[in-house]
Simulated assay, not measured.
Amino acid sequence: MYKAILFDLDNTLLDYTSSELDAMHRAIAQHRLLELGGFEWETFRSVFAPINWTYWSERVERQIHISQVLHFSFRDTLAQLGFDPSLSDPLAKTYWHLFCNTCHVMEGAHHVLLTLHGRYPLGIISNGIGEAQRARLKTGGMDHYFDHLFISDEMGLWKPDRAIFDSAVHAFGLDHSEVLFVGDSLQDDYIGAERSGIDFCYYNPVGLPIGELHQPKFAIQSLSELTMMLDNR
Score class of each variant (00 low, 15 high):
215 Q>R: 15
206 V>P: 00
174 L>S: 06
132 A>Q: 10
142 M>I: 11
200 F>D: 06
171 A>W: 00
211 G>P: 06
149 L>E: 03
137 L>E: 04
136 R>W: 11
187 Q>W: 03
225 E>L: 11
225 E>V: 13
210 I>F: 11
221 Q>I: 02
217 K>T: 12
183 G>V: 03
204 N>K: 10
191 I>V: 13
148 H>V: 00
201 C>F: 07
197 G>S: 12
184 D>N: 15
143 D>G: 08
173 G>K: 05
139 T>A: 14
169 V>Y: 01
142 M>A: 11
219 A>Y: 00
162 R>L: 11
162 R>D: 01
203 Y>P: 07
183 G>C: 08
149 L>C: 08
185 S>R: 15
227 T>A: 15
227 T>E: 14
194 E>W: 09
228 M>C: 04
212 E>I: 10
153 D>H: 09
146 F>G: 03
152 S>F: 10
176 H>D: 01
214 H>I: 03
202 Y>F: 15
190 Y>F: 14
191 I>R: 15
175 D>Q: 03
221 Q>E: 15
178 E>M: 01
143 D>N: 14
160 P>T: 14
198 I>W: 06
180 L>T: 01
160 P>N: 11
162 R>W: 02
136 R>K: 15
213 L>I: 04
197 G>I: 09
170 H>F: 05
141 G>C: 07
147 D>S: 15
211 G>S: 12
210 I>L: 12
165 F>S: 05
217 K>F: 00
154 E>I: 11
146 F>Q: 09
190 Y>R: 09
134 R>D: 12
162 R>Q: 13
212 E>C: 05
177 S>R: 13
141 G>P: 05
169 V>W: 00
137 L>R: 04
179 V>Q: 02
185 S>G: 12
153 D>L: 05
207 G>A: 13
184 D>C: 07
216 P>Y: 14
218 F>N: 02
172 F>R: 07
224 S>C: 05
181 F>C: 04
179 V>G: 02
228 M>R: 10
175 D>F: 00
139 T>W: 06
152 S>A: 15
177 S>L: 03
192 G>N: 07
193 A>C: 01
163 A>Y: 07
176 H>M: 05
176 H>L: 01
145 Y>H: 15
165 F>Q: 04
190 Y>E: 02
135 A>Y: 04
215 Q>Y: 08
182 V>Q: 01
137 L>D: 08
154 E>Y: 11
210 I>E: 04
178 E>G: 00
228 M>I: 02
216 P>W: 14
211 G>V: 08
213 L>S: 14
216 P>Q: 14
145 Y>G: 01
188 D>S: 15
152 S>L: 10
180 L>H: 02
152 S>E: 07
149 L>T: 08
193 A>R: 03
211 G>E: 11
168 A>K: 08
200 F>W: 13
199 D>G: 07
222 S>V: 09
218 F>P: 00
196 S>L: 10
165 F>G: 05
218 F>Q: 04
180 L>K: 06
142 M>K: 05
228 M>D: 10
139 T>E: 13
153 D>S: 04
219 A>G: 01
218 F>V: 06
135 A>L: 11
197 G>N: 11
177 S>P: 00
224 S>W: 02
162 R>V: 04
181 F>G: 01
205 P>L: 04
148 H>N: 10
133 Q>A: 00
165 F>E: 03
201 C>H: 02
135 A>K: 15
222 S>P: 00
160 P>Y: 13
135 A>M: 11
163 A>M: 13
218 F>E: 00
168 A>M: 05
